[in-house]
């Protein structure tokens, strides 16, 4: 099969890697807090503990922080895999994954606003990062379409 040359601008690649790293560190921090049971100091917003200890913070028996770690690792892995292989399939997976992350984040923000009534600044950071990743994902998607 002739491989189609697809060029994703390198700044997009870099931005995704940096964002994934920020998201990963953020999630890893929350996960470490969860495992150690230490309270989470909050600034700007209030209620980091309320949010992170709420029943909504677990999905399929796994803390959301762990899902975050897996998600950002996955995004980073896909991006590096693309850099390595330039595979079209991998390039298609990146926008799909970022869309998934964006939708999940939107849902978590909704939960924080309407179900818990408190915001956790680290979770908002994660939501921002996934939103930016989604925007980058869309630019890749457009490249693929063109």
């Amino acid at each position: 099969m002739p491989s189609r040359i697809l060029s994703i601008p390198s700044w997009v690649i870099w931005a995704i890697i940096v964002l994934a790293l920020i998201g990963f560190t953020d999630s890893a921090f929350l996960l470490a807090k969860r495992i150690s049971g230490a309270p989470i100091p909050c600034f700007i917003t209030s209620g980091c503990d309320t949010v992170s200890k709420s029943p909504y913070s677990i999905l399929f028996g796994v803390p959301l922080a762990a899902w975050g770690v897996i998600f950002y690792l996955g995004i980073g892995f896909l991006t590096l895999l693309y850099v390595d292989t330039k595979s079209l399939v991998v390039a298609k997976l990146i926008p799909v994954a970022t869309a998934l992350g964006f939708l999940s984040s939107a849902y978590f923000v909704y939960i924080q606003k309407f179900k818990i009534g408190a915001f956790c600044v680290y979770c908002i950071l994660s939501a921002l990062v996934s939103t930016l990743l989604f925007v980058l994902g869309v630019t890749i998607w457009k490249k693929l379409k063109s």
Partner: peptide, 25 residues
């Protein structure tokens, strides 16, 4: 080099996050 640096960066980020999270409050 790419994959090893990625592993290294992830390891550093994990250790950093863990240290900050569990460090003296």
């Amino acid at each position: 080099i790419i994959w090893l640096s990625a592993l290294l960066v992830i390891a550093i980020a994990s250790i950093g996050a863990y240290q900050v999270a569990t460090g003296p409050r």
